[in-house]
């Protein structure tokens, strides 16, 4: 049984800023802004929510090569992790997904209100179009510490599943 490190899963479920990186067949990168993610149960999989206004070119890219790079970072402390792997499932977000997604948004708004100097957090976070979204699940192959500094890019000790 392979599991993602529990402290990292806990971090992933927190009010973190999340981004998606994919690339097309000609190796041109594309960037997306994710509105929440979860890794439930003993698993090596992460699911995240990609709003449909952003689904292109990512869905085409994932159909082409399946490669996912995703980061989650905390705004104030700059603590940040990158997860890399291959996509295993793509579905229209369900009502249950939407509930997690909205919970994430509320958490992030609260975080910005309480923790961060930035004005108008509700507008900042609430301004992102979230509905409808696609839930994308990928199997994590590598995790990197991405907190800025000399250790940025160092792999986190994690044994991926076979194959």
């Amino acid at each position: 049984m392979v599991m993602l490190p529990s402290d990292i899963v806990e971090f992933l479920h927190g009010p973190q800023i999340m981004a998606l990186g994919t690339r097309d067949a000609t190796l041109r990168p594309a960037m997306g802004r994710l509105l929440g993610a979860f890794a439930e149960g003993p698993t090596d999989r992460i699911s995240f929510f990609l709003p449909n206004v952003q689904s292109e070119p990512h869905l085409t890219n994932l159909a082409d090569n399946g490669l996912v790079a995703m980061t989650a970072g905390e705004a104030r402390t700059h603590r940040n992790y990158q997860f890399k792997g291959r996509v295993v499932a793509v579905r229209a977000s369900t009502a249950a997904d939407a509930a997690i997604r909205d919970l994430y948004r509320d958490k992030l708004i609260r975080y910005f209100r309480e923790e961060y100097f930035m004005p108008l957090p509700d507008e900042f976070i609430g301004g992102y179009i979230s509905e409808p979204s696609t839930t994308i699940t990928f199997r994590v192959a590598k995790i990197f510490n991405q907190t800025p500094g000399p250790n940025a890019g160092k792999p986190i000790d994690f044994v991926p599943a076979e194959g």
Binding site: G21, L27, M31, N80, Q82
Partner: peptide
Amino acid sequence: IVTCALDGEPNVTT
């Protein structure tokens, strides 16, 4: 910023 290695692996960072 998103980059991509020559082996095709995308990379995201701030």
